[in-house]
Structure formats: C-alpha cells, structure tokens
C-alpha cells in the first residue's frame, strides 16, 4: 500500500469532468484506489464518491493505492493532477 498527499491545483476544484477522467483512469488498473479528504474516505473508482468529496482549489487530499500495479496507478494519477486534468 502506498499513501501520498497531494494538493488540488485546479481553480475549479475536482468538479465533474476531472472526476470522470480520474475514475476512468483508475478503472484501467487492478489496484484498489481510495481518496481521503479530511475525515471522508471514498472509493476512487466510483464517480459519485469522487464528486462528493468536493475537493476545492488548494485543498489537500490523500491518495491511497493498494495492489499489484499500485506504483503505476499512482504515477498516472499524479501525472493527471500535475497536468491539471488538461484544463
């Protein structure tokens, strides 16, 4: 299991479109993927959960990956956040 904290750099936060991209990406991997924000932990492979986090601009979230391809998954997710979901 790997845990990693990350700051949301999207001005609009993790809204519908980025959430969809994130979930689509996560579903291509076999590892479990959870996101924690404050006291809420959700399954990162489910769109509604990710949207419900309502992770706003500059908020801190924790990515939790667990499974055979966890490193690759984390790498790809980080890339997505770095590119600010292409926005």
């Amino acid at each position: 299991m790997i845990k990693k904290k990350i700051i949301v750099q999207n001005k609009l936060g993790l809204h519908a479109r980025p959430s969809a991209l994130l979930v689509k990406l996560a579903n291509q991997f076999r590892s479990e993927f959870h996101i924690r924000k404050d006291d809420m932990t959700i399954n990162g492979k489910s769109i509604l959960g990710v949207m419900m986090l309502a992770a706003e601009y500059l908020s801190e979230i924790e990515l939790i990956v667990d499974g055979v391809d966890e490193e690759y998954l984390l790498e790809e997710i980080e890339k997505l956040f770095e590119q600010q979901f292409g926005e």
Partner: peptide
Amino acid sequence: GAEAMQRKLAEEMQQKARQR
C-alpha cells in the same frame, strides 16, 4: 440531474476555496 449536482458541488468548492 447531472447538471444540478455539478452546480451544487461547484458552489460548495468555490465557497470553500474562498474561505481558504
């Protein structure tokens, strides 16, 4: 429905970002 939820969450995130 999708738009309504998106709008509500966007409002919430904006408010939190302002507060921050």
